[in-house]
């Protein structure tokens, strides 16, 4: 069993509206899985199905080799995008209550909370009411409550919203640490740079359908554009540019260098060896820059959504 979670051919309808159409995703154990998609694509519906908040109309969900059932509630920690806490309840009381709902005993919940509160340096909030805290502070408490029962599967929907860069970093480190300790993480966000930074695998959902999934590197390989960013020095740059343009499809590149070089994006045909290009270029001038252009998650996202 290498996959912690397997969603098999899940469909969900709301009246006539199809929220998910035959979607399957597999989430490897111990990975950080990016669940991406434009607004209204069906991500939240999928997450709610995994959390058993909504039931799928068709298909099945398997968690750690077992069909998803009520007892798995304590194996999952969920930080929804629409989140909040009871405003007039004290922080400590509330955290204990939420932990108890996840099956922890009161004493155990208290012990673990003390640990986490100390760790995040929020110990003196224990007796405050939520309405006295700022949004970021409340978010921290929500994060603690989500991970407190040490679930196998953590689901974070836009976990960094509302955090300043310092606290966002702190939470990011905590997520990475939780993964090291064996948790599997589903991570849904519109911030592509954090996907780039954190995720091992991704799936892209668009208009109720999964249009893309796999290891991030594989996806990138799939979206490879065979284009190289090149800087080359020559006595006659105009002449050289003309010459290269006749041989390859070329566009202007934009990057910073020390000298005034000819900067180009050069596309080669798939299957062609980049060395051939490099050899050709070295004959023409002094190559100061030669980098393969790797599509960013952002590019992949936009391209995939537009193509489908």
């Amino acid at each position: 069993m290498n996959n912690l979670l397997e969603v098999n051919n899940v469909s969900k309808y709301f009246g006539d509206f199809k929220a998910l159409n035959n979607v399957s995703v597999s989430i490897p154990k111990g990975s950080i899985f990016g669940l991406l998609g434009p607004n209204g694509a069906g991500k939240t519906t999928l997450i709610r199905i995994v959390n058993q908040i909504t039931m799928p109309d068709a298909g099945s969900v398997v968690l750690d080799g077992e069909a998803l059932s009520q007892k798995h509630i304590m194996d999952i920690g969920y930080l929804p995008e629409e989140r909040g806490l009871y405003k007039s309840m004290k922080v400590g009381e509330q955290a204990i209550y939420l932990a108890q709902l996840k099956g922890l005993s009161k004493a155990e919940a208290k012990k673990r909370l003390k640990y986490w509160f100390e760790r995040l340096e929020i110990g003196d909030w224990w007796n405050k009411k939520i309405q006295e805290l700022s949004k970021g502070m409340a978010q921290k408490i929500q994060f603690v409550v989500t991970v407190l029962h040490e679930p196998k599967l953590l689901i974070f929907d836009e976990p960094f919203s509302g955090f300043d860069p310092i606290n966002a970093n702190l939470i990011k480190d905590e997520i990475l640490r939780l993964r090291e300790n064996g948790a599997t993480v589903i991570f849904s966000t519109h911030r592509m740079e954090s996907v780039e930074e954190l995720c091992d695998d991704i799936a892209l959902i668009h208009k109720s359908n999964k249009i893309l999934d796999g290891k991030l590197v594989d996806v990138k390989r799939q979206f490879k554009i065979n284009t190289f960013e090149v800087g080359i020095r020559s006595n006659n740059q105009l002449e050289l540019e003309k010459e290269i343009s006749e041989k390859f499809s070329v566009s202007k590149a934009n990057f910073k260098t020390l000298e005034d070089e000819l900067k180009l994006n050069i596309k080669i045909n798939p299957g062609e060896n980049p060395n051939d290009l490099l050899n050709y270029l070295t004959q023409k001038g002094e190559v100061s820059h030669f980098v393969e252009l790797i599509p960013s998650v952002n590019d992949i996202f936009i391209q995939a959504v537009n193509n489908s």
């Binding site: 908040i53 509630i73 999952i76 929804p80 629409e82 939420l98 709902l101 929500q142």
Partner: peptide, 16 residues
């Protein structure tokens, strides 16, 4: 209504 407006509801019903 309070549970709805404070948006805690989704956290709760992922447990109960």
């Amino acid at each position: 209504i309070e549970e709805k407006t404070s948006r805690i509801i989704e956290v709760i019903i992922s447990s109960v």
